[in-house]
Design a protein around this nucleic acid. Structure first.
Lengths: 206, 206
DNA sequence: ACTTTTGTTAACCATTTGGTTAAACCATGA
DNA sequence: TCATGGTTTAACCAAATGGTTAACAAAAGT
């Protein structure tokens, strides 16, 4: 069946992504992935030597896509605050598209820091700017109010990512109080994040 | 060894907590827990029929402790904003003491919503007030500015919890940019959270 | 045509893992 | 002292699981 040829590998990757994101590295069973892909288990090992290899492929891909998406922060043609606003937009939209990605990454990173460090170093190596550096420079040059860049970065990431990470908890909380939290509320979320960004980064506030 | 008697059970629970928090339900091995407790594996099954039972015990305990800690929000003798400030303090301090708790809960909840719902319903049943209800009332009665309680709740939880959930990521980010993020920065974190609370809940801002 | 390479499978293997069993241990009360 | 009953262990078991092998199928090269 040369039909599948290049298709099988993609199918496997897709299936693996699905299963890994749902169950994590430990929870996922090779058999589950094979079933999901509709193929024999041995074929997994034919395309990807072993579980970790397969996991790496999926994991690395996701991480690369994320960093690529966030590169906006380096665009020096825009005022920093605009870059940060766009950064938050892309962050939220990315997570809205891959709602499980964040928790997936955290899960696996927390149980395998070494791997993550390597991956990140590999991907980020060639990028001069990170949000953190941009913020530091902005403060030094007086384009931003005097804030602690690390704390701001943390606050911002928290506001963007946690709603997705903790979606199950929020559903439970809201349900318990008779309020509905639909996934369509991303606009509201973004609005509140933008407010926060203006609150922290606008000099007019001082 | 009648010495251990009541001690063994506690030791097991403690060890299980440690291992479960580190590895999650799937990742944790009964043998690991037994080793950690310095006992035979069969003894685990003697005290707690099986893995799920043991897990339940740890899980339920953690959840109960958390909710108990957060009861402050119901104290009607205080202005709402003060309650929220204390709420955030306790939240952060709780997580500082059990840094892995948050991610642990999220991991397990996301892979077992049913169990969580039951637990939460059981624990919260008798509590009239939740942060959400308090906020709603506060807005209705004009004690608070007109905010969306759900969005505020989400923002607040995000700011408090995500730094702990994503600690590995932040370490990586900071390391990559030559900045150090120590666990002692909780004060800075709390300060920024308090700023946020005042920003959103103080009427003087309008 | 036929040989080689690539893709795919069923059957199998070694190890791990949750769980069980039967026997030993030990404090205590009769 | 010795019987009792709660506590602890070594040895074991069955199922699950990651991974391998050998054989087969389908293209592709010759």
């Amino acid at each position: 069946m040369k039909l599948k040829d290049q298709n099988t590998e993609a199918t496997i990757l897709e299936s693996a992504k699905l299963i890994f994101m749902e169950k994590g590295l430990y929870g996922a069973r090779m058999q589950d992935i094979a079933n999901q892909a509709g193929i024999n288990k041995a074929l997994l090992h034919y395309y990807f030597r072993n579980k970790e290899r397969l996991f790496d492929e999926v994991f690395g891909g996701a991480l690369a896509r994320y960093f690529q998406n966030m590169e906006i922060i380096s665009d020096e043609s825009l005022p920093i605050i605009d870059r940060v606003l766009t950064y938050s937009n892309r962050f939220v939209y990315f997570l809205a598209e891959y709602p499980q990605m964040s928790i997936f990454l955290i899960k696996e990173i927390s149980s395998n820091q070494a791997l993550f460090h390597l991956k990140v170093q590999g991907i980020k190596k060639d990028k001069k700017y990170s949000l953190l550096n941009v913020l530091k420079e902005g403060v030094e040059k007086g384009e931003l109010p005097v804030i602690d860049p690390v704390v701001f970065l943390m606050n911002l990431h928290s506001l963007c990512a946690y709603p997705f990470v903790a979606a199950p908890i929020f559903h439970a909380i809201c349900q318990g109080s008779g309020v509905q939290w639909t996934d369509a509320n991303h606009e509201k979320l973004l609005q509140s994040i933008h407010e926060f960004i203006h609150f922290k980064l606008s000099k007019s506030h001082l």
